[in-house]
C-alpha cells in the first residue's frame, strides 16, 4: 500500500486496526496526527494553517473557502508544491473540478474535523494499548529541509512502527507521489517487491538501493 498525506493517515489507521490486511506500507509526508497536534508550534500552525482553520465549526471554513474555492485550492497546492513542473495542468484541472463545489468543501472540512476528533481518540487508544504498526514501513518525506522539519521527522513514525521497516529516505523531492523521480519510484517498488523482510527489532534498518 502506498499513501500520501490524508491517504497516509487512512493507511496508518488501517495498519493499526487491521494489521493482517496490510503486507507492506509506504507512508509519504506524514507524521501521526496525534504527534502533529501534540508537537504544534508556531511554525507548524503558520505553514499548515488549514489543520487549524478547517476544524473550526461549520459553516465558517466552508463559507470562506466557498467564496473563492479556486483561489484557495491554488494557494494550498502552490504552497505545498516546491518542485516546478511537478503539478501538471491536467491534474490541476481535475482538482479544481472536484474541489470547487459545496459538497467537497464541506466533506474535506469534515475529514479534518474527524481527524482532530475521533481520529485523535483512536490514536490515543492505540497509544495506551501499545499498538504499533507491525507491517514493514517505508517512509518518504519531501527533500526541502523546512518542510521535513515541519511535517515531522522519521523518528516520529519510527516510534509508531515496530522498528522493523526500512529507513526513512531523505533527499527526495517534495510532493513525491506525483513524481517519478528515480529514488522515489525505485524505493517504493523495491519495498513492494521484497517478499521477505525480517522483523527483528535488533536489525539495523536496511537501506534500499
Amino acid at each position: 500500500m502506498g499513501a500520501h498525506d490524508r491517504g497516509a493517515r487512512v493507511a496508518h489507521r488501517l495498519c493499526l486496526d487491521s494489521p493482517k490486511s496490510v503486507k507492506k506500507v509506504c507512508l509519504m509526508d506524514i507524521a501521526p496526527t496525534l504527534t502533529m497536534y501534540r508537537q504544534t508550534n508556531q511554525e507548524f500552525a503558520t505553514k499548515y494553517m488549514w489543520w487549524f482553520f478547517l476544524i473550526q465549526a461549520a459553516p465558517l471554513p466552508e463559507h470562506l473557502i466557498g467564496l473563492d474555492p479556486q483561489y484557495y485550492l491554488g494557494d494550498i497546492l502552490s504552497g505545498l508544491n516546491k518542485t516546478p513542473g511537478a503539478l501538471t495542468p491536467e491534474a490541476v484541472s481535475e482538482y479544481v473540478r472536484c474541489f470547487c463545489c459545496t459538497s467537497t468543501i464541506h466533506a474535506t472540512c469534515e475529514d479534518f474535523r474527524a481527524a482532530a476528533d475521533i481520529g485523535l481518540e483512536m490514536d490515543e487508544a492505540d497509544e495506551r494499548a501499545g499498538n504499533k504498526i507491525v507491517a514493514p514501513v517505508h517512509v518518504l518525506w519531501g527533500a526541502k529541509k523546512q518542510r521535513r522539519a515541519v511535517v515531522g521527522r522519521p523518528r516520529d513514525l519510527a516510534g509508531e512502527s515496530g522498528l522493523n521497516g526500512y529507513r526513512a529516505r531523505s533527499r527526495l523531492r517534495p510532493f513525491s507521489p506525483r513524481r517519478t523521480s528515480r529514488g522515489n519510484l525505485r524505493g517504493t517498488a523495491a519495498l513492494l517487491r521484497h517478499s521477505v523482510i525480517r522483523r527483528t527489532t535488533q536489525e539495523r534498518p536496511r537501506r534500499l538501493t
Partner: peptide, 28 residues
C-alpha cells in the same frame, strides 16, 4: 500481480498518482 492500493492526499484526488501508477501497474 500483487495488489497495491494507492491513497491520495488533501485537497486532491486519485489523479495525484498519474505519473507513478502506470509504471507501478507494469508489475502490480
Amino acid at each position: 500481480g500483487p495488489p497495491v492500493l494507492l491513497l491520495h492526499g488533501y485537497p486532491e484526488t486519485h489523479v495525484t498518482w498519474h505519473k507513478v501508477a502506470p509504471r507501478l501497474a507494469e508489475r502490480f
